[in-house]
């Protein structure tokens, strides 16, 4: 059985592409055959986060315009050979791909892959319509910030209008701020938005470090964000995995922050 999942958010900069890269590698680590499709035409970055930026020859635009078959445009991951990236063009714009062309492509690719993850651009314009059209379900990425939650709600409304089953990922949670009452937690975001949560990812410096290297953090055993992504992967595969509780700062760290963070 094959599944097409779109990763979307509304607001930019909340971690759609990071989530796509991590879930893709995580599913590949589970032995699934995975394709990652970047639809953020003109602003592609999925290649960079996967360390595949120097291997791109053809793009999604070449494929939908029938210059090459999709197999020729796929870039194989260096470590996981069951993970393939279909990059998009860095020069074309969002109008280069029509929703119907994307629908046709995902239908064909279903024959070859267990999971097809579609990285959606920010916004609610044509790029969004193109990204979601072929998807069975959606993962909406948001952050514990008012603007990100509001934009997520807008996206959820659009997804519900298209009858897409949607789940929420709350990204970049800072446990100490949640404990101090200065940041929304997963439960209250869940209460505000109308869809179930499939994951909460703590803010982790290793995410930046891993992006620098082009190795998604899901591969790193000692990363708390990596653990959160591994849990989401298991939930996508149908396992019932309890949500983690995150460690907060000890008394010494709190005292140090208090003394050295005055404005």
């Amino acid at each position: 059985m094959s599944e097409v999942i779109v990763i979307t958010s509304g607001k930019g900069g909340v971690g759609k592409t990071t989530t796509t890269a991590n879930l893709g590698v995580g599913l590949a680590m589970q032995g699934k055959k995975v394709a990652l499709v970047d639809t953020d035409t003109g602003l592609r970055n999925l290649d960079l986060l996967l360390g595949l930026e120097r291997r791109i020859v053809y793009t999604l635009v070449d494929v939908v315009q029938k210059r090459v078959g999709y197999g020729q445009a796929l870039v194989r991951h260096k470590k996981y050979e069951n993970l393939l990236l279909l990059p998009t063009s860095q020069v074309a714009d969002k109008t280069a791909i029509e929703p119907e062309q994307m629908l046709e492509l995902t239908q064909v690719m279903r024959n070859e892959f267990d999971y097809i993850l579609v990285d959606c651009p920010a916004g609610i314009e044509q790029g969004f319509q193109t990204a979601i059209i072929g998807a069975d379900r959606a993962i909406v990425v948001t952050m514990p910030e008012v603007a990100a939650v509001r934009d997520a709600d807008k996206i959820i409304g659009r997804l519900q209008a298209e009858n897409k089953d949607s789940h929420l990922v709350v990204n970049r949670i800072r446990p100490q701020m949640v404990k101090d009452g200065t940041m929304l937690d997963m439960t209250s975001i869940n209460d505000i938005l109308s869809i179930p949560c499939i994951g909460q990812v703590p803010d982790d410096e290793k995410v930046v470090d891993s992006a620098n290297r082009g190795i998604p953090v899901v591969e790193w055993d000692d990363s708390v964000a990596g653990q959160a992504y591994r849990n989401i992967v298991r939930r996508i595969c149908g396992e019932d995995v309890p949500f983690q509780t995150f460690e907060t700062d000890g008394w010494f760290t709190r005292l140090r922050k208090k003394l050295f963070s005055h404005h």
Partner: peptide, 29 residues
């Protein structure tokens, strides 16, 4: 005050955020 406090208002801003979001989303929807 300068050394130990900050100019930001105190209190649980997460509750404020939740309340404001509930209202703004009601209007958006």
């Amino acid at each position: 005050k300068k050394l130990f406090g900050s100019s930001a208002p105190s209190g649980r801003s997460s509750d404020v955020a939740a309340q404001r979001l509930k209202f703004v989303l009601l209007n958006d929807r």
